[in-house]
Simulated assay, not measured.
Amino acid sequence: MKEFDLQELEVATDSFSSSRIVGKGSHGSVYGGVLKDGNHVAVKKQSLGLQKLRDNTKLENEARILSSLPPHPSLINLLGISHDPFGNRILVTEYMPNGTLHEILHLSASPLPWSKRVEFAIQIAKGVRFIHESDPSIVHRDIKSANVLVDKNWNAKLADFGLAIRLNNKDELNLPAGTIGYLDPSYTTPSKLSTKIDVFSYGVLLLELISSRKVIDVLESPASIVEWALPLIERGRMTEVLDKRVRLPRYMGGTIKQLLRMAARCLSPTECLRPSMGEIVANLEGSIVRPVRLPLSINFIGDIILKILRRKTFKFGGTKRKEMAPITCADHDMRSCDCSKKMSKGTLLVREILADFTLK
């Protein structure tokens, strides 16, 4: 592992100036900096409270876990380490300019589009699957939106491995740890440690990602996102869980419902009924429906419609008709939306033209 010179990091961060802080946690502060070679980095330094207690175990643990893993596109990349004058560990990681998923969901004025939410869900799941399938398995123990960082290309990466632990480590004092709201309520003793506690936390994160509601919100009733969302999912009222600020495209409805069903499985109080992260990744990737855009001319679309109209009877919206019915696209009335403009530009989806037609 590369050893960075402390002086270089001090220059890069203006002597760890408070103006350079890009993130804070219970274990330390993260400073944005530019190295002498021009590379942007994030420098994680122990919090003042832990410095006074001379407790550097969390950063030591994070460095040990990350350095033992090969690079993975869904995990934060550890570039190297350094030490302060007292011997405390300092971590240097890649810089993630788009901040945390928590900030994006709860502080940004622009809500995430549904396609990006699904992409994030899969990327995070792949990161957790990777550490669970390492040898020996690693349990993160603190999966939450604040520990998911987003890079310049808008890819999500799992970060903050201060509480992570290997399942075969019998020498560590594995006291339950995590964040209230995300923490598996059945994880009450060291013997309960398993990869399934990460699965529970991931299920909570899925609900947060889909609803944009805070995991614990004392202004809501119930305050817990789990207690609020699970009954709605179980009753089939899934649309009430969705972030109302963003219109859900029709073709994505099935995918989002599948994410909510998966969240419910992850949150099962019976640990053995929760899926593995491998199953979660396969399920979510298999549920994706992407619109296929074809270069359609007006004449081509007209030919399709004429062929339909030549039939003596046809179904439109589930009802047999013999007369021409008002034609609508999948989401709008053709007489009032701009679909006709899309047709002329050749960008209208086939599904938008024929979504409601069912030939006899």
Rank of each mutant, 00 (worst) to 15 (best):
E3M: 10
D5I: 11
A12D: 10
D14P: 08
D14R: 13
F16T: 03
I21M: 02
G23Q: 02
K24I: 03
S26M: 08
V34A: 09
G38E: 01
N39W: 06
K44V: 03
K44M: 01
Q46I: 07
S47V: 03
L50R: 05
K52T: 09
R54D: 14
N61C: 08
E62F: 04
S67L: 12
L69H: 13
P73A: 00
P73H: 00
S74I: 07
N77L: 11
N77G: 05
I81H: 06
I81N: 00
H83K: 07
F86S: 15
N88K: 02
R89E: 07
L91W: 02
T93I: 02
P97I: 06
L101P: 00
E103T: 13
L107T: 08
S108P: 10
S110W: 00
L112N: 12
K116W: 06
F120S: 07
K126L: 12
R129N: 15
R129W: 08
H132E: 09
E133R: 09
E133F: 11
D135T: 14
P136V: 11
D142F: 07
K144V: 04
S145V: 08
S145Q: 09
V150S: 12
K152T: 01
N155I: 06
N155P: 05
L158I: 01
L163Y: 09
I165S: 11
D171G: 02
E172Q: 14
N174Y: 02
G178M: 06
T179E: 09
Y182P: 00
P185L: 04
S191V: 12
D198H: 03
V204R: 10
L206P: 11
S211L: 10
S211Q: 11
S221G: 04
P222I: 04
V226C: 01
P231Y: 12
L242N: 00
K244E: 15
V246E: 09
Y251R: 00
G253V: 01
K257M: 11
L260S: 08
M262H: 04
M262R: 11
A264P: 08
A264D: 10
L273M: 07
R274E: 02
I280A: 02
L284C: 07
S287M: 09
P291H: 05
L294R: 15
L296I: 04
N299E: 14
N299R: 13
D303W: 05
I304R: 06
K307W: 06
R311I: 07
F314M: 14
F316W: 15
F316E: 10
D338F: 08
K342Q: 13
G346Q: 02
T347Q: 04
L348E: 08
L348R: 03
V350H: 07
R351C: 08
R351M: 15
E352D: 15
K360L: 14
